[in-house]
């Protein structure tokens, strides 16, 4: 095991309440951390109440999606995710090169340089892109941008909702990580960069320490060599090993942790979400690692 890796235990609990019993309900859940790059998932469990056997698939963006169908009438759906994630220190910060526009036009990554449902490319963000980035095609301009946004806008929980638009942030002057990330994506895409939305968690700094209530969002920018580099437009600058990646997409709409449809006349309340991220000790991490290895071994033998 990489001794420079940090290990985190994540509990992510969601409770959905309906005004009356519904049946059946169909749910798509994107809550499994990604196994790409410097991050891997050592253990993962998704337990629901009422109970269900989730089936999984991998979506267009490479995120694991669990399908949870509940057949019996229920007025509450609880989903508990317990997972242990190992995150290695990046081997030095990458500073990807910009794209030749003609090359990008024929590349699949072009998708991330275009407008998306939650990141429309309108005149207001075009003006900001000219003002903040102008003709600077370097990645440094984007690092600057990630530090500029938290200076220009106030981080204020409750200033916006999960459905708020970029215009709401520009008009109100305050928002949360989701709004900052959407604004970053719009400005970067106007400047011709493929850039995507990342949802995840921010782990605590010290050993044994834990943070609660933190679902986080940031962005990744793709360079001409095809590598993605993470930037955090809420805290400013590069992401580190404390940024645990859950799902990526064009914008929040692609990574929403829960999407559900049910039969019935009920209305659903806003989900109650609690997140707790704990930095595990070396010893606890090794135990988890062994557990994961044992699990794999059993899987192979079956």
């Amino acid at each position: 095991m990489d001794s420079h890796a940090l290990t985190f235990a994540v509990s992510h609990h969601t409770i959905l309440r309906y005004s009356e019993a519904v049946s059946p309900s169909y749910n798509e859940v994107r809550m499994r951390p990604r196994d790409r790059g410097t991050q891997r998932t050592l253990t993962f469990a998704l337990i629901t109440s009422p109970p269900a056997v989730p089936r999984s698939r991998v979506d267009f963006f490479g995120n694991t999606v669990h399908r949870v169908d509940i057949g019996d009438p229920h007025d509450t759906l609880a989903m508990a995710v317990e997972t242990v994630v190992e995150s290695a220190l990046p081997r030095g910060r990458s500073s990807p090169a910009g794209w030749d526009p003609a090359t990008l036009e024929r590349d699949a990554r072009l998708e991330y340089a275009l407008a998306s449902p939650r990141v429309p490319l309108g005149p207001s963000t075009a003006a900001l892109s000219r003002e903040w980035i102008g003709d600077d095609r370097s990645f440094d301009a984007l690092v600057e941008l990630s530090m500029l946004i938290p200076r220009e806008f106030r981080y204020l929980t409750g200033a916006t909702t999960v459905d708020s638009s970029i215009e709401d942030l520009l008009g109100g002057g305050a928002g949360v990580c989701q709004d900052f990330s959407h604004l970053f994506l719009a400005v970067a895409r106007h400047a011709g960069w493929p850039a995507r939305y990342v949802s995840g968690y921010l782990g605590p700094e010290g050993e044994h320490a834990s943070t609660s209530g933190v679902s986080h969002a940031w962005v990744e920018v793709c360079g001409a060599d095809g590598t993605w580099a993470g930037l955090d437009p809420t805290h400013g600058g590069h992401v580190g090993p404390h940024h645990l990646r859950l799902a990526v997409g064009r914008d929040y709409g692609d990574v929403a942790p829960h999407r559900g449809v049910f039969y019935g006349t009920a209305h659903a309340s806003t989900p109650e979400v609690t997140v707790r991220v704990t930095r595990m000790s070396e010893r606890a991490a090794r135990t988890a690692e062994r557990g994961a290895a044992l699990y794999w071994q059993q899987q192979q033998q079956q």
Partner: peptide, 27 residues
Amino acid sequence: AQRALRDGVVPARLVYSSTGYLRDLVG
């Protein structure tokens, strides 16, 4: 494989911005 997009026969930009292109069905 999106060969025609890579070969520039049909602009990728038009496909990726089409309401008829359902990216979740790729593959």
